[in-house]
Design a protein around this nucleic acid. Structure first.
Lengths: 132, 132
DNA sequence: CTCATTTGAGTGGTATTACCAATCAAGTTA
DNA sequence: TAACTTGATTGGTAATACCACTCAAATGAG
């Protein structure tokens, strides 16, 4: 475990703690938050959503059940495949997703603002290169 | 939500997915993995461990129950306070913690190795400055 | 064209996680 | 010494996530 790896893991835990906190403030689990984020720019079938989340299909069924009960998502049966279900955000879901993005930004800001703007850009570039 | 913040969140999710995977390969939850990591260089009382983990004391009771059942941790009643319980890793616990550190390093390596050594150091420095 | 198979989603059962409220024993204080 | 506080655990509940299974819809082989 090198130095970068260690700081990366530490930073991840810190970020995840903040995300959990932001989510919990709106009675969302981390998983629901992720689902919301994914659904912001997609309307996947259940199986696709499960793949995106890295979860079992059955886990996602319950997840979407609860989100639907709260009026955040909608299930529409696919037109081309009678078995498939397409999941999408409701108006409320989109609103909440937007709010969450804002609040998470605010929660993380104290961390990132420890760096100069130039260093923030450097960090962003390096992290992006890790990801794609 | 700025660009850095976005990449930081994305990177965190990626790292956490890898950590979960590494943990799951040894039948550990992410929380148990964290506990193991904390206990590597501490022998806290239950309440202190709960604080480190950011969890309720009652949650930690169960967590340590299960870890103790697996022989990873030990509970010793504190000598100075008859109520307090000191938690520490067993031999097996230490062994597993070391293995986990190695395996996590290997899992994250493909990510970090996308950067040159110099850039890895830069990233490490920037992340460290976010953290302390 | 029909029957078997595959595929998409959901159900039921179990373990874990995490919370809160309450309990209980051990310390502390009035 | 009695009242209070503190450390840990227990019990109850909800969510998460798994697996094995079911069920209906789509696909394929003969």
């Amino acid at each position: 475990m090198t130095d970068v790896q260690d700081s990366l893991v530490r930073a991840s835990f810190t970020v995840m703690a903040l995300l959990s906190q932001a989510a919990a403030a709106h009675d969302l689990s981390l998983t629901q938050l992720r689902a919301l984020a994914i659904l912001r720019d997609r309307e996947p079938k259940m199986a696709e959503l499960a793949d995106h989340l890295g979860l079992d299909r059955s886990s996602v069924s319950g997840l979407i059940d609860r989100a639907a009960r709260r009026g955040l998502v909608r299930r529409d049966s696919s037109s081309d495949d009678g078995r498939a279900v397409r999941v999408s955000l409701t108006e409320d879901g989109h609103r909440l997703a937007a709010v969450m993005t804002d609040e998470i930004g605010s929660l993380i800001a104290p961390m990132t603002s420890r760096l100069s703007t130039a260093d923030q850009n450097r960090l962003g570039t390096l992290l992006t290169r890790l990801l794609d």
